[in-house]
Design a protein around this nucleic acid. Structure first.
Lengths: 208, 208, 208, 208
DNA sequence: CATGAATGAGCCTTCATTCAT
DNA sequence: GATGAATGAAGGCTCATTCAT
């Protein structure tokens, strides 16, 4: 005779934690989308809650306050980019290739909600502490692109340009993508990333 | 007998109007600066008033409401650009030259408070009516740059690219300038505009 | 044949009840301490739960609501005093002696958490019903002290004073003890109670 | 012919300021009363506003926040007492007289709303900064009473007691007055202050 | 015109309490 | 019984805007 094992009414702790994380994640995705769509200030906690079919206070189970949500969005966006950059910096030999690959990867990111969050919403909405962290990270991103360009100039792959200005201008193209890209638009994220890579290469390549 | 004309305590209408315009202008300049510096939502009417050493209600003598100020900032910025573009479109023969000149002029503009206002502050803060006007204008700017590029492809001065994406990417570089340019920084507005022109030319030039 | 009695996983009802009472008691002691330490409003149910290493809803197994806890604290405090007073009223002959003994006993009580609860936390935090009970009891305490004084005046042990005011003033000294007494302070509860008794006697004694 | 001087529509600045101060004062008096009557936490800003026939935000013209009002109440209460104490400390020769006069003056104060505020409402409702000031002041009051007693012991007017405990106990009688005194009650403020003085003198007097 | 004062509308956040598991 | 999650109700505060003088 086989013993019937009843399905326990208790979700295992692991699953419970997974639930919680999934919910937290849902809050984050919803919030990111609304922040990008409507702006941080115009997005009320009530909006976020409503979109998730929960009540306002429930949000506070997952985040301390509105700013905390924003900060988490930033963090997710930056982590996504970080991991791309690590790969880019390893797999490319010349400064030019690194810069181009960097910008392409960055562009792809900028077509996601969390990527857009990085530039669409204003880091001045963060408190001093998190703001400092975000700014430090942003500066580091910038300086890495600048380094690629500078190294490209050294190794002869990049024509002589002011690395600081060039990095800002190229990053500007990418950052701005978040302002106009729409999933439903005529160009795919890949198309745009390719175009960006192409343009950056044209703009930077050293010519005989 | 000569009639004696007493010096009236009332300034002549013309002068009065000039005064009023000057004050209105001061409000606008102050507001634009604060909007750019701190963001629209974080800038309170009280801040604007305080910076001008007047009281809050006084602002309402010159503008109907906060949004009205924002709209006026947009308008000023767009008019400045309009006039530049008109010149640009006349004085350049190839599509490439027009596009490059366009971007250079635009970049210079983007280092002024009103220019920055165009991109720094969010047009979703405007009511439906003015928002529509602003968006229409923005689209027109965009389509004009796109036209230059398309014409450049036709006349052989620009290499084959997707004009829509290219225009967005290049405009992005320029628009982003407002985010990092500081009067006190290491590069002058001219330097940046030149670098932008140089980069755009490299990125677009058709090569035998 | 002997029936084997398996050790049940269920504790016997008596022991269970004892457990429950012990836990209820622990809640009360913790709450009383926190109420005194931080005040009723600043003490959150979450705080109480956390201090007991249990969860918030668990508290509701022992008490209907927060107010119920407060009421129980009051009750415990008042019962402790009641029993002291009964003894005091029996074992002293003159009104003066009774009043002094009363105040001394009361003072000792005021150095315990439950005693302090009686005066530190606000009975307006109770609902009409319990509030009435508490107030009635407080008034009874007061009137008993007043009676001792009045009787003392009659029996010649107490000098002529307004019993109402005198009772209030003396009770005030005692009640206030909860505001400044600290276990770790320089004076022991006994010292303070003695000083209180001494002072009351000096203040009330009829002199030739 | 007499020149008719029209009554100016402009209130003179001085009167304007007086108006403001009067209103600020009204807020304070109303708030103090409600704080004493209902407790700080149970008093909503809306309550205060309603009692003054104004709206909630109007309160914020006179005070930064609720706590600020509480702090102002404390300050007013403490200033009233300060001025009394200064007089008391000058006009009495023996330590005993000073202590008694001190307690009498203090008692009178404790029958006013601002005086009651000092002890009725909880200084833990203040932020760290103002709380520190309030506590410092309270300690100073206490130490001054203690000094009177100690000096009284030295000059032979006060019998040997522990000055710390005695000061606390006597201050307790006074502080507690705020808890039971009612304007409409059977005893006047003067009666109570006299009774307090009488009792303190009896309690402290050194007897041959 | 200018000003001090006031207001209405709204938003973030807290917390005691309850529910589903 | 106990737990994590959720909720309803409410309160403090802000700020653009308007009024009375």
């Amino acid at each position: 005779m086989q013993i019937e094992i009843p399905t326990s009414p208790w979700k295992p702790a692991a699953e419970r934690q997974r639930d919680r994380d999934a919910k937290r994640d849902a809050v984050l995705r919803t919030a990111a989308r609304l922040f990008v769509e409507n702006g941080f200030h115009r997005t009320k906690m009530a909006d976020v809650a409503e979109h998730l079919h929960i009540t306002k206070p429930a949000l506070y189970h997952y985040f301390r306050n509105k700013e905390d949500i924003l900060y988490a969005c930033y963090m997710l966006g930056s982590e996504m980019i970080e991991s791309l950059l690590a790969e880019v910096e390893l797999n490319n030999s010349t400064g030019l290739d690194r810069a181009v690959a960097f910008l392409k990867a960055y562009t792809l990111n900028m077509t996601t909600d969390f990527g857009m969050c990085l530039v669409t919403v204003d880091d001045r909405d963060l408190a001093t502490d998190s703001r400092r962290k975000v700014r430090t990270w942003k500066r580091s991103i910038d300086s890495r692109l600048r380094s690629c360009i500078a190294e490209g100039i050294s190794d002869g792959s990049v024509r002589p340009v002011d690395p600081r200005i060039a990095a800002f201008l190229l990053a500007g193209s990418v950052n701005w993508v978040g302002q106009w890209f729409r999933e439903s638009g005529p160009s795919s994220a890949e198309d745009i990333a390719d175009a960006m890579a192409d343009m950056a290469r044209q703009a930077l390549t050293a010519r005989g």
